[in-house]
Simulated scan of single mutants.
Amino acid sequence: MAEPHPSGVAGLILAGGQGSRMNHQDKGLVALRGEPMVAHVARCLAPQVGRLIISANRHADRYARYGEVVADGEPELGAWQGPLVGIAAALAAASSDEWLVIAPCDTPFLPADLAARLVGAAQAAGAPMAYAVAGGQRHSACMAVRTSVLPALLEYLRAGDRKVGLWQARSGAVEALFDDAPAHAFMNVNTPEDLAQAERYASQ
């Protein structure tokens, strides 16, 4: 199957978390090898998509250096409501695209073919979304989603649900296998200890 053309694919970096395990720092702006983590994610994801969106609820001016910033959430849903609220905001912003490829701001070592393989897996299965699986481990926040799922996502959120995995299961999401990716390709930098490990990986 031919790879999707980036012009029909938008990218989203999720940067709306509270960073509770990183001493409440804004994780996307935590330095890794002298650059904010969001810079590492953007450098990987931007060439794979036609436009790059960043979902954030603070430091919008700093994030704007790396992409188009959208506020994380809707007034009716409240703040700090988890990644799905940020995804909903980005889906609305990317309505002219067919697909939205999503990655968290704390995954600095993503595969260079992430978007193509996620979208390709969903297309091959006739599914509205696909999420990454590597070495038997599910990485739900690394996913490709058809932008047409926005109304159903908003309905799910307004019902009070926030779990990413449950939404994916109800929506018919499929796996995209990345078993050939490096062991740290989907590493989440959640804690200072993770950051120290990421520094070691980045220096290799």
Rank of each mutant, 00 (worst) to 15 (best):
A2Y: 04
H5S: 12
V9T: 09
A10E: 01
I13R: 02
L14V: 05
Q18A: 11
H24L: 06
H24R: 09
Q25K: 09
L29D: 02
A31E: 06
R33C: 07
E35T: 01
M37L: 11
M37D: 01
H40Q: 02
A42Y: 00
R43N: 07
C44D: 11
L45I: 05
R51A: 14
R51I: 12
I53K: 01
I54Y: 00
I54Q: 01
S55Q: 00
A56H: 01
H59M: 11
H59R: 04
D61M: 02
R65L: 04
E68A: 12
A71E: 12
G73S: 08
G73H: 03
E74V: 05
E74A: 14
P75C: 08
E76L: 08
W80G: 15
L84Q: 08
V85G: 13
G86N: 04
I87S: 15
A89T: 11
A89I: 03
A90L: 03
L91D: 09
A94H: 04
S95V: 09
S96Q: 14
W99I: 10
W99S: 15
A103R: 02
C105G: 13
C105F: 01
P108N: 09
P111K: 05
D113P: 03
L114P: 07
A115V: 04
A116Q: 03
G120I: 02
Q123R: 14
A125C: 14
P128Y: 07
M129Y: 06
Y131Q: 12
A132E: 04
Q137F: 10
R138S: 10
H139A: 10
H139P: 05
S140G: 15
A141L: 13
C142F: 03
M143T: 13
A144T: 03
V145Y: 07
R146N: 12
V149E: 13
V149T: 12
A152F: 03
L153Q: 14
E155R: 06
Y156K: 08
Y156V: 08
K163H: 15
V164Y: 06
L166N: 11
A176R: 00
F178R: 02
A181M: 03
P182Y: 01
F186L: 06
M187D: 13
V189H: 07
N190V: 08
N190H: 12
E193I: 07
E193N: 14
L195E: 07
A196Q: 14
A196Y: 04
E199T: 12
Y201D: 15
Q204N: 11
